[in-house]
């Protein structure tokens, strides 16, 4: 049995104020070829809370998210200037290896993308990449159980760990995609519209899970869904045309937005 300490929301927020920021973005500019997708982004994401990135399509929110574990670099034509610090360390610094960055900053994608391996091998995939020495089978079993328990999947899949992960339902797949990040003990979880491929029930289950993970991990989530941002985040960042327009506590942003563009967007006048 793995017991996870549950924190009350206010405790989480107090913790967030004291802890060093999870992510500090400074003067980040990013180009796809000649197209500039991010303009001088400055942003501080607090530790242990859920921060939602909102904004219309093409505003750069996914780009910003994907910069935070350098997965953007898969595309050969991306140029980045500025810095992104995770727990104070510059992940674009000369010393930083993107392989290590990705172990500390996990990413969940829009469409659940479990690898065509067994459930067990999916959970252990990241760990096996980064482990410096061979883990015993018992260690691995423990890791699999803990990760799957954390995402509330253990009871549903414990009897079929050897089955192909691609045979799970979309909700289970997405939870598995979160679970497989956990064995490398990341500090930040990035989620790129993690519920957009799911039906309403599954969406609510995954949202609950994200809310549960809060406190243990700093979570940055991109969403198109205003209602989701409102109910499942502590802070909100509104982006437009590659710039951060407004960053405030979620309640504050939805009740009394400071910028005209923000209020236009959340009231559905564009986007």
């Amino acid at each position: 049995m793995v017991d996870l300490p549950k924190r009350r929301p206010d405790e989480v927020l107090v913790h967030a104020k004291e802890a060093p920021p999870a992510i500090e973005v400074a003067r980040l500019n990013l180009w796809y070829g000649k197209f500039q997708a991010l303009h001088d982004v400055d942003l501080t994401i607090k530790s242990g809370i859920v921060t939602a990135l909102i904004g219309p399509s093409g505003c750069g929110k996914s780009t910003l998210l994907r910069s935070c574990n350098r997965i953007n670099e898969r595309l050969g034509y991306v140029t980045t200037t500025g810095t992104i610090k995770v727990l104070g360390e510059d992940i674009y610094g000369e010393q930083a290896s993107r392989i290590q960055v990705r172990a500390h900053v996990g990413m969940v994608f829009q469409r659940p993308n479990p690898l065509p391996l067994s459930i067990r091998d999916n959970v252990l995939f990241g760990h096996r990449l980064h482990a410096t020495r061979h883990s015993s089978r018992a260690d691995e079993d423990g890791m699999v159980e803990q990760a799957l328990r954390e995402v509330l999947l253990w009871d549903r899949v414990k009897d079929r760990l050897q089955h192909k992960a691609t045979g799970l339902s979309l909700e289970e797949q997405q939870k598995l995609c979160i679970a497989r990040l956990l064995p490398t003990k990341p500090t930040v979880l990035l989620m790129d519209e993690p519920c957009s491929a799911l039906d309403p029930e599954a969406t609510s289950a995954v949202e609950d899970l994200i809310w549960d993970l809060r406190g243990h991990y700093s979570i940055l989530i991109v969403t198109h869904n205003m209602a989701q941002a409102r109910r499942a985040s502590d802070e909100c960042v509104f982006m437009l045309m590659g710039r951060v327009v407004e960053h405030s506590a979620t309640e504050a942003m939805f009740v009394s937005p400071q910028q005209q563009q923000t209020s236009d967007y959340i009231e559905g006048r564009f986007g």
Binding site: A103, G106, G126, H130
Partner: peptide, 15 residues
């Protein structure tokens, strides 16, 4: 998406 998933977990190109 398989390649992307593996890379996001920190796999090198060869892995």
């Amino acid at each position: 998406s398989y390649r992307e998933a593996a890379e996001a977990l920190g796999a090198t190109r060869w892995q």
